[in-house]
Amino acid sequence: MVVAAVSDFGPVLFDGTGQAIYVFDVEKTSQPRCYGSCAVAWPPVLTDGAPLAGDRVEEALLGTTRRSDGTTQVTYDGHPLYFYAHEGKDEVKCHDVFLNGGTWYAVQPDGDRAPTPST
Rank of each mutant, 00 (worst) to 15 (best):
M1N: 12
M1P: 07
V2Q: 01
V3L: 03
A4R: 03
A4V: 05
A5L: 03
A5I: 02
V6M: 13
V6C: 06
S7F: 03
S7I: 06
F9V: 12
F9K: 00
P11Q: 15
P11C: 04
L13T: 03
L13S: 03
F14L: 10
F14R: 11
G16P: 04
G18F: 09
G18P: 12
Q19V: 06
A20V: 01
I21S: 05
Y22I: 01
F24L: 13
F24V: 00
D25L: 00
D25C: 02
V26A: 14
E27D: 12
E27Y: 11
E27I: 06
T29L: 09
P32W: 09
P32D: 10
P32A: 08
R33N: 09
R33C: 04
R33H: 12
C34A: 06
G36E: 09
C38H: 10
C38M: 09
C38P: 06
A39Y: 06
V40I: 15
A41C: 11
W42P: 10
P43K: 09
P43A: 11
P44Y: 03
V45F: 02
T47E: 10
D48I: 14
L52H: 09
L52R: 14
A53H: 04
A53K: 04
D55L: 11
V57W: 01
V57A: 10
E58C: 01
E59V: 08
E59C: 07
E59T: 02
L61C: 09
L61K: 15
L62F: 03
L62A: 01
G63E: 00
T64M: 04
T64A: 05
T64P: 07
R66T: 14
R66D: 11
R67G: 06
R67K: 15
S68Q: 14
S68N: 13
S68V: 04
G70N: 06
T71V: 02
T72Q: 13
Q73N: 08
Q73L: 02
V74P: 00
T75G: 08
T75Q: 12
G78M: 03
P80T: 12
P80M: 14
P80C: 07
Y82N: 07
Y84A: 13
A85L: 01
H86G: 08
E87N: 04
E87H: 10
E87Q: 15
E87I: 03
G88A: 04
K89D: 02
K89I: 11
D90M: 14
E91W: 00
V92N: 02
C94A: 01
H95E: 04
D96S: 14
V97N: 06
F98A: 09
N100F: 15
G102W: 08
T103V: 14
A106S: 13
A106R: 05
V107I: 14
Q108S: 03
Q108T: 10
P109H: 11
P109W: 08
D110C: 08
D110P: 08
D110W: 10
G111P: 07
R113N: 14
R113V: 06
P115K: 00
T116S: 14
T116G: 09
T116K: 15
T116F: 08
P117C: 01
